[in-house]
Write a protein that binds this DNA or RNA. Structure first.
Length: 219
DNA sequence: GACCAGGCACATC
DNA sequence: GATGTGCATGGT
């Protein structure tokens, strides 16, 4: 019989067993925003190469990414895959940011979290809920819980079988309502879930070395 | 050579 | 509302 834990207990167990993850791996909020788009359905290793290419060309700013030519971006982003699609998405995002927020990430301080989130999702093609929430949390320091494929997989293996088919916001709000609204907590929590997910063999239905072996989550 | 990786938009039913 | 498909590279 599995031991049942709530989201707060799950966090404590993950942190105890895996330690701090120091996310997001980037040098600036602008780099976080870029990385959030480039890592869509893509291994982070390949994203790092693409970001290094863009950085080398001096393109890691809101204004530079907003005004760069699509072909330039696409060729530099090639290692990250989906480079034609992502070149459009990166330009859509940074053009919107420049026009609606300002030339650097600090200008977002003038906007409420809920307003920013709704507008990102409604007005930017290529920025879906996970990308928007990753940016809000890791680039703009907002207390938004990020749901990703690892989160769903871990939940479905540990007591929440329906996690794979639950709506994004249903899962997000389940975590947010069960936890204190602290940016630092949400930051570490999502990073721990990703680390935990990477530790387990994704093909096998379960993992013997799983840090959550014998636990069932109760949302 | 198959499978996978920190999604998203769009078409179709 | 649910399901299927295209987008693409690099590592295992």
């Amino acid at each position: 019989m599995a031991r049942r834990v709530n989201p707060a207990e799950l966090y404590n167990i993950l942190f105890e067993r895996l330690g701090p993850q120091h996310w997001w791996p980037a040098d600036s909020p602008e780099e976080v925003m870029l990385g959030a788009i480039l890592t869509q359905n893509t291994a982070w290793r390949n994203v790092e190469t693409a970001i290094a290419n863009l950085k080398e060309r001096g393109l890691l700013s809101v204004a530079a990414l907003a005004s760069a030519r699509k072909n330039t971006l696409a060729s530099l982003m090639r290692p990250a895959g989906y480079y034609n699609v992502k070149a459009d998405r990166v330009r859509n995002y940074f053009r919107w940011f420049l026009a609606e927020i300002g030339p650097d990430a600090s200008h977002a301080q003038n906007f409420a979290t809920g307003v920013l989130r709704r507008r990102m999702l409604a007005e930017i093609s290529g920025t879906g809920p996970e990308t928007a929430d990753s940016i809000l949390l890791y680039a703009l320091d907002r207390p938004v819980f990020v749901i990703d494929a690892y989160t769903r997989r871990i939940l479905s293996r540990h007591g929440v079988k329906a996690a794979g088919s639950m709506k994004y916001d249903e899962l997000r709000l389940a975590f947010q309502s069960a936890l204190p609204r602290h940016t630092g907590l949400f930051n570490e929590y999502h990073a721990l879930l990703v680390r935990c997910g990477k530790l387990c063999n994704t093909r096998a239905p379960s993992c013997s070395a799983c840090p959550l072996d014998g636990l069932a989550v109760k949302l």
